[in-house]
Design a protein around this nucleic acid. Structure first.
Lengths: 306, 306
DNA sequence: TGACTTTACGGTTGCCGTAACGATT
DNA sequence: AATCGTTACGGCAACCGTAAAGTCA
């Protein structure tokens, strides 16, 4: 007898419909049927009368429903209480972000701290060259990265902000005078190669391998960190797209950030190791989901002097 | 959160010792450690303070223990009530036995029927040639077979009786005059071949492949059923060991059953498909365990006329 | 015939055991 | 040094999804 099977039983007892039960629990219809059959075999008595048209509880099922509902409520209350105690006891989540992105997360962090006074968030810097490494080594609990993320060992949580891209070019670059850049421009120059530790598909969602018209975008010299990238760009040997947040809080010498109006917005989401799921992470994710994504355009954040 | 983990938590809360907890639950010590760690991570707070010398509940753990204990009790009560309703509702277990072995099971069946008035047992005959087939096809719910049984898909339950062996020989066989037979005698004659559907190791536990002194015991003509075996034996072409129960209720013409004092006793146990576990089967197994094995020697059963 | 449930089958997750390691008295 | 808890790793059972079959109105 597993908790999951009890949930399925209770939901079916409420819905009296296998399809709707499956939908509500986000499982297949077959799974509901299997779970109920199995329970009935183990217990040795029919819990539901069913045809392909009607599902109804047997007397035994009705009684079992009452008992199990009470037990499950008790169980969840107990766990919730323990969790609340834990969140009040002072845990610090280590949150990986690119550059100054943490600054944009202030609303989220403020609400999180208010809701869970014992808990806190500490920002660690992550880099394009190693977007997930710190998660996997256990050095970070949660990272904020642009989507899509399709790593089998990672869970993608709510999106925390949405924003556009800018192209970093050297101040004396031919594009600098135009004031904006387009995806099509990328094919004319080299972009930074983030190296083998960043998944290909993930890099490509920031820096496509081809322009919209199909021209190849050449990958140039390699760099891992924000400042390594800027160093390369400053020499004029390459250009590189970044989240617009990079332009908001940085004015590096010899670099110009050009808006890229034709590049679709990027979604930045909380991400964590699936097996490292914990109460604090769930609490942060829930808080982020409640707040919804912050749009960088509407952000009221004031620029900060470096 | 799984039921099993809750059990582990509650047991450890009681024992305050990882090793004893593991023993009580029949799992490894590592498993207990893993389960507790995992729960603590998910909940986000330590439930036990522990060194390698002392284990004690934290305040949060103490509170959780009370809640979970109540929830688990409720859950088990509900399931027990539903199960009891099922057992009272009238199920018939199909019990596979060799020949007249069902007769020896009367004490078990009587107690079972008394305890669970709605349930019943029906005997189906099984044969040495196909000891497990009916279980696997679903034609029988439980079989009574001699041990050892080492089939990955089958569960071996309590032993229901213990008894010796007899050797079936034709009435004019040289051994008949002696009145007894020994394992060593088998090498001098052929024994029946039960065919490919009975596992080799299982057949060998009734009919060894070699005598104690190491001589090979030749396998003779093939037969599947009790009466096929007796037919072969009656012709004098082979001999064959059987459970002594065969001698008790049969006096087939032209056949003599010789006790085999040097053959170790056989244990006969309830066996069922692991995946077909059900309340009725558990009830029967529990009843059998409570009664303990019936010794055929001390059996008060009166011989029955063929 | 169409809506709904059940059965069959295969992939993948995660439970759990074995074994080695670490920590405390 | 002995006892006890933790970590690492691998095998395998069970969960669950897909797809097809079965059943009732």
């Amino acid at each position: 007898m597993e908790i999951r099977e009890i949930e399925i039983f209770l939901t079916l007892a409420e819905e009296l419909h296998f399809g709707r039960t499956a939908e509500r629990l986000h499982v297949s219809q077959a799974r509901v049927s299997q779970a109920i059959s199995r329970q009935e075999r183990r217990i040795g008595v029919a819990l539901f009368d069913r045809t392909s048209r009607r599902v109804s509880l047997t007397p035994v099922g009705r009684r079992l429903r009452e008992d199990l509902q009470k037990a499950l409520d008790l169980l969840r209350d107990g766990l919730a209480r323990a969790e609340a105690a834990g969140l009040g006891a002072g845990q610090t989540l280590r949150l990986g972000v690119f550059g100054h992105a943490g600054y944009e997360l202030r609303p989220l962090v403020d609400v999180f701290r208010t809701r869970y006074p014992g808990s806190d968030v500490q920002f660690n810097e992550i880099t394009g060259g190693h977007p997930f490494t710190a998660l996997r080594t256990g050095d970070n609990d949660v990272n904020v990265v642009w989507l899509p993320v399709a790593e089998p060992d990672l869970t993608v949580g709510p999106t925390v902000y949405v924003g556009g891209r800018v192209l970093a070019v050297s101040a004396d670059h031919p594009l600098a005078e135009r004031g904006t850049a387009s995806l099509e421009d990328l094919a004319d120059y080299h972009v930074v190669d983030l190296g083998p530790d960043a998944p290909e598909y993930w890099v490509a969602s920031m820096v496509p391998t081809r322009t919209p018209s199909g021209r190849r975008i050449p990958r140039g010299p390699a760099a891992r960190t924000f400042h390594e990238i800027l160093s390369l760009v400053a020499t004029g040997r390459c250009v590189h797209p970044l989240g617009e947040i990079a332009a908001r809080y940085n004015s590096p010498p010899g670099i110009v950030f050009l808006p890229m109006p034709d590049a679709p917005d990027l979604h930045w989401a909380l991400t964590w190791r699936s097996t490292a799921d914990s109460a604090a992470i769930r609490a942060l994710a829930q808080t982020a989901a409640d707040l919804g994504p912050i749009s960088l355009d509407r952000s009221s954040a004031a620029p900060v002097a470096g």
